[in-house]
C-alpha cells in the first residue's frame, strides 16, 4: 500500500476539506465566540476567554422571553415527537395492507414536503383566521360570554403551531416507517399468530419490540425537526414565539455574544439528545453474533 497516490486523491482531498470547513466551520466559530471575554464583541478577535455569556444566559437578565421560548419549544417538540411516532407507526401499519386509494393518500401526505414551508405556514394562518371569525360569530349569536370578551385567536403553539410542525414531521416519519416495514419479514407475525397470539399481542410482543430501535430514530427526527423549525412556525404561533423565532428576531437586534452562548447551549442539547438516542438504539438491538 505504499504506492504513490494519484493526483486526483489530492484534488478530492482538498474538496473534502473545504466541505468539512463549510459544514463545521460556522459551528466551531460560534462555539469559540461563545466563550468570548466580558469585554469582547460579536466578532473575532477573542478578548480573553470566559464563561461570562453563559452566566448571563443562565441568569436570564432581561431575557425572560428566551427562557419562555425555550421551554415552549421544548414542550412543543416533545408533543410533536410523540404524535409523529404514534401516527407514523399506525400509518405505516395501515399502508402494509394495500387499501384502496393508498397511493393517492401517500402523495397527499408527502405533498407538504414539496410545498414551500412559508406557504404552508401562511395557509395555516389564513385558515385559522377563518376559524377565528367563525368562532366569534358563533359566540356572538349564541351569546357565549368568554368568546365575546376573552377570545382573541385560535392560533397558538399547540393548535396551529402543532399542526404546522406535523405537516413537516409526519411525511418524514411515514417514509421512515415505509423503509422499516419493507424490510420486516411478515413471517414473524405469522409465527406469532401460529403460536396463538391475538393481533394486539402480535403487535405488542413481536412487531413493536422489533421495530423499536427505528422508532427512536423517528422520535429524534420528529423532535429535532420541530425544535429548529422556523419557516413553518413563522406565521402560526399567534402571540407566542418558539426558540428559533426568538433567535431569528434577536439576530436582527443583536448586540452581544450572549446569542452565541445560547447557540452553543442548544447545539449541546441536540448533541446530547442524539447521544442518548444512539445509546438506546445500540442497547435495544439484539447483540450481533460474534466471530
Amino acid at each position: 500500500m505504499s504506492a504513490r497516490r494519484p493526483r486526483s486523491f489530492y484534488v478530492l482531498a482538498f474538496l473534502f476539506v473545504l466541505f468539512l470547513l463549510f459544514l463545521y466551520g460556522p459551528m466551531i466559530s460560534i462555539l469559540v465566540l461563545s466563550f468570548q471575554g466580558p469585554e469582547g464583541g460579536l466578532v473575532f478577535p477573542m478578548v480573553g476567554v470566559s464563561t461570562h455569556w453563559f452566566e448571563r444566559l443562565w441568569a436570564g437578565g432581561g431575557q425572560v422571553e428566551i427562557g419562555a421560548a425555550l421551554r415552549r419549544s421544548f414542550a412543543l417538540a416533545l408533543v410533536v415527537m410523540v404524535l409523529t411516532v404514534t401516527i407514523s407507526v399506525l400509518a405505516g401499519l395501515a399502508f402494509r395492507r394495500r387499501f384502496r386509494g393508498a397511493t393517492v393518500l401517500l402523495y397527499v401526505a408527502i405533498a407538504s414536503l414539496i410545498v414551500p414551508s412559508i406557504v404552508v405556514s401562511l395557509g395555516i394562518a389564513l385558515e385559522f383566521r377563518l376559524l377565528d371569525d367563525a368562532i366569534k360569530a358563533v359566540g356572538a349569536v349564541a351569546g357565549i360570554e368568554w368568546v365575546q370578551t376573552g377570545f382573541v385567536s385560535a392560533l397558538g403553539p399547540f393548535t396551529s403551531g402543532l399542526g404546522a410542525h406535523l405537516t413537516w414531521t409526519l411525511p418524514f416519519g411515514l417514509l421512515i416507517m415505509f423503509a422499516v416495514f419493507n424490510r420486516f419479514d411478515p413471517a414473524y407475525e405469522e409465527a406469532a399468530r401460529d403460536l396463538g397470539a391475538t393481533p394486539w399481542q402480535t403487535f405488542r410482543h413481536v412487531t413493536l419490540p422489533m421495530i423499536a430501535p427505528f422508532l427512536i430514530g423517528v422520535a429524534v427526527f420528529g423532535f429535532t425537526l420541530s425544535w429548529d423549525e422556523l419557516a413553518r412556525s413563522s406565521q402560526v404561533m399567534g402571540a407566542q414565539n418558539t426558540l428559533p423565532m426568538q433567535l431569528a428576531a434577536k439576530t436582527t437586534t443583536v448586540t452581544d455574544p450572549e446569542i452565541y452562548a445560547l447557540g452553543t447551549a442548544t447545539t449541546g442539547g441536540s448533541v446530547l439528545l442524539l447521544l442518548v438516542a444512539f445509546t438506546l438504539i445500540s442497547l435495544m438491538q439484539p447483540r450481533r453474533k460474534r466471530g
Binding site: 419479514d185 409465527a191 419490540p209
Partner: peptide
C-alpha cells in the same frame, strides 16, 4: 391444532 415451522424459522430476535 396445527403448528408451523417457517422456512426462515422466524425466531423472535429480541
Amino acid at each position: 391444532g396445527t403448528a408451523m415451522m417457517f422456512q426462515s424459522y422466524a425466531l423472535f430476535p429480541h
